[in-house]
């Protein structure tokens, strides 16, 4: 007589099969597919892992500031500089840019 419940039917049919599964069968039908999936996932994510974290616009930025071609040495404090003779131009002595140009953008 067949059981009415479908789940009970399935359990009844699978139970003798599961108990008879050997280690070799599990290796072939579970181990090898799992290994293939792992290798494919590694291949897909390998490049991003090697490149490191990527900038995504709109998300917060945690990296410390980077300054390429920054000042080579700390400038002397203008207040502590010796007084210049009268008539000397101070524009270049203080190292402050006079008129600047450029452009701005946002994304």
């Amino acid at each position: 007589m067949r059981p009415r419940n479908g789940r009970g039917c399935l359990r009844t049919r699978l139970l003798p099969v599961i108990t008879q599964l050997s280690g070799h069968t599990l290796l072939v039908f579970v181990g090898i597919p799992a290994l293939v999936v792992a290798v494919l996932a590694l291949l897909v994510f390998a490049s991003s892992i090697a490149k490191g974290p990527r900038y995504r616009p709109g998300l917060s930025w945690w990296a410390p500031p980077v300054w390429i071609g920054g000042p080579t040495a700390t400038k002397p404090d203008p207040a502590s500089l010796p007084e210049l003779p009268a008539g000397t131009t101070t524009a270049t002595a203080t190292g402050v840019a006079r008129t600047t140009g450029g452009a701005s953008a946002s994304w």
């Binding site: 930025w61 990296a63 000042p71 190292g95 840019a97 006079r98 600047t100 994304w107």
Partner: peptide
């Protein structure tokens, strides 16, 4: 930042704010 450079008048500064998504290019005199 431009004024902190050694020779600001002859310098070009590219400033990028990734969090604020702002870009500034500043050129000296």
């Amino acid at each position: 930042l431009l004024n902190e450079l050694d020779d600001p008048d002859n310098s070009v500064l590219v400033y990028v704010d990734p969090a604020g998504r702002r870009l500034e290019i500043v050129t000296g005199a």
